[in-house]
Design a binder for these strands. Sequence first.
DNA 1: CGATTTAATTTGCGACGCGTATTAATAAGA
DNA 2: TCTTATTAATACGCGTCGCAAATTAAATCG
Lengths: 399, 399
Amino acid sequence: MKTADPELMRAMNRFSVLDSIRRHGPISRVEITERTELSPTTVSAITGSLLDDGLILTRHEGDIRSESVRGRPRVMLELNPAAARVVGAKIAANRMVFVVTDFCGSVLAALTLPIRIDRQPISVIADIVEDGVRRCVLDAGLALSEIHSICLGLPGVIEHRSGHIRSSPILRDANVDFAAEMSARLKTTTIVESDATAITLAHHWFGQARDLEDMVLVSLEQTLGLGVLHNNRLFRGAGGLSHNLGDLVLGMSKDGVMRLASQAGENAILGSEQADGRFAEAVRLGRGMAHAQALIEADDSPLIGAAIRAGETIGFTIANIVTLFAPPRVIVVGSSLALGEPFLTSLRKAYALAIPPSLQDVSEIVFDDSNDDLWARGAAAVALYELYESPWNTTGPAL
Amino acid sequence: MKTADPELMRAMNRFSVLDSIRRHGPISRVEITERTELSPTTVSAITGSLLDDGLILTRHEGDIRSESVRGRPRVMLELNPAAARVVGAKIAANRMVFVVTDFCGSVLAALTLPIRIDRQPISVIADIVEDGVRRCVLDAGLALSEIHSICLGLPGVIEHRSGHIRSSPILRDANVDFAAEMSARLKTTTIVESDATAITLAHHWFGQARDLEDMVLVSLEQTLGLGVLHNNRLFRGAGGLSHNLGDLVLGMSKDGVMRLASQAGENAILGSEQADGRFAEAVRLGRGMAHAQALIEADDSPLIGAAIRAGETIGFTIANIVTLFAPPRVIVVGSSLALGEPFLTSLRKAYALAIPPSLQDVSEIVFDDSNDDLWARGAAAVALYELYESPWNTTGPAL
DNA sequence: CGATTTAATTTGCGACGCGTATTAATAAGA
DNA sequence: TCTTATTAATACGCGTCGCAAATTAAATCG
């Protein structure tokens, strides 16, 4: 077990303060005191040290309640955007999205590469990723040496702690130490993370879960992913292993197992339409969902049927997830949301049927169709999170 | 967020030391130093305070390596059994089991009431439970006032934090504040917990998960439960809600949802045999599994078929759990294990098929058919755990 | 019996968080 | 304009913690 010494105590409170500043914009010391329940003294000491380290800035203007308030005005504190920069990336089968963000998580530069990397050997993919990172950093007017760390989000079973990709639908190889590979290439600390986990943190920081400390996110893309926020922290399986919803088994028959991915994955839904040559081509190029959307609006009944079936399956799967994690909110994201009403309605209906009565009021389902940038930004947030947890001068009694 | 002050620090380290002593029997201070990575000074201070509080005892004999070792002999420390007593209970549909344990978790008295309480109103059940607790305490030669706290383990959806039973297959009523009810009746702190969670802690403390800090347990009784140990702690859903495996949905049809409980619950398996009057009677009296075992050994093919189907379903459900939690070990417990080879073989086979290749080596499955006492002891362990976390004299700098 | 070895405690130090008192910076009132 | 009231932030002193080094305790070995 981790041993508790003053240093840990300091680190915890420092994180607590830093997190308050991040979450609640420009914020005064008094308000931090209230939020963290730390004493004014401690807050003052910690913010002082954060200021010394250049992680935060003061601002004298922004006190909202400045009109007709008597005493000394509050000095507002905010993150120093220039304190560090990180790169976040979303790596998917048919595209990569890179962003460079500052210390606040604001995007400085974004780059989308619509490249189909599906099942290329690892070296090819690493080449493309390396290139993307370098270009995006350049676009931001920075040098790679100015980047503190990089986080790559990709689908599959990721072992965050060790940086290994145990398996990913977009890779040919299995069990690759991708973090080490990319760290060596870019000479910058690189971590890998499940894309679903990344977007989960993105929603916690910037999106629909800012107000929550527990939450579950289901991502419906070519791969089906799951992210869990538990007690304000990302919950990963034992050993830091990420979840992979698509691997869930729905049932068994003589021929083998029926997995969720084969029932409600993007390919499964669109696959029902593969007869049409133009459509298949669109799918291959990553435009499948856009096409599907058009077809559904034109009342393409086989596709609508597939969407309804998928929605039903996802619906009760979400109910199962709620049974296990009891989160107050489930956020559903991903390209499959483009299937529109037939899909969503059947999902909601199936969920309502499947959720056990005793959990009926526990969870609300929310849909969110943010763009790819948010995913990449989530990856960046993962990198920032690790930074926040151990701000370089962890020890720093002023001086 | 919890604010970190010296008190928290001390509490953490105190717990760490106490836990070392609990786990590793009589243990010397040096060894605690090694295990906890605390400094000898700190260990000495904390053990001193624990000794003052009467939570631990010294023992001068038990140094194993005492022969032909030069220096000053180690003084062994161990829990003081008399430091506190708690009651643990397992409440099931057709029986209740109570135990009184000492501070080490050793059973001082056990009491089994083979009473069918299925779906009685809450007041009736509370009466029986109250009676059972009182009798068991008496059997241990104690008075209720000497009991520090009580933990009741029962199936269903339990909200541990608030003490509410949101729903339980053995209760007629839903959303009962059972902890408050029993606390008032017994005038002793009473907590409620999912039975699966209780047995999970039992295995962590006394059983097949002593060496692990992550683990998942699946309980197959009349109800299907799940317990998760994550990072040496019990993992409960958001809000302290326990999991209830039986509510998991396997699929949907026009008539409604198909839940795991209806496919692989004890009643579902034995239900296939209800034609036989004698057998139905046995089931009603809680001897169903014993009978089933006999029938299976006598090659009762419909029942064997049911067992195989149930095993298959449980098998891939476990694979799904592993996909989500990636525990190094899954412990399967509960009366359904009595179905024997047909059941276990089909479970293993289904699991092997269903587990995603990338997780093949992650988890091992272990079966355990401990008796009911262990369940009740697990409940007692839950009570003790909360005691350990805040040993009364939380503040106590020697003096 | 003294030297040696290992265990446990004592001592001195630096860091932390907190409570109280103090200083800083503003608005309202005379 | 000057004073007072009010609120924000800091300085100081206290008690606790954990740790490293020194010291004491208790055994074995020659």
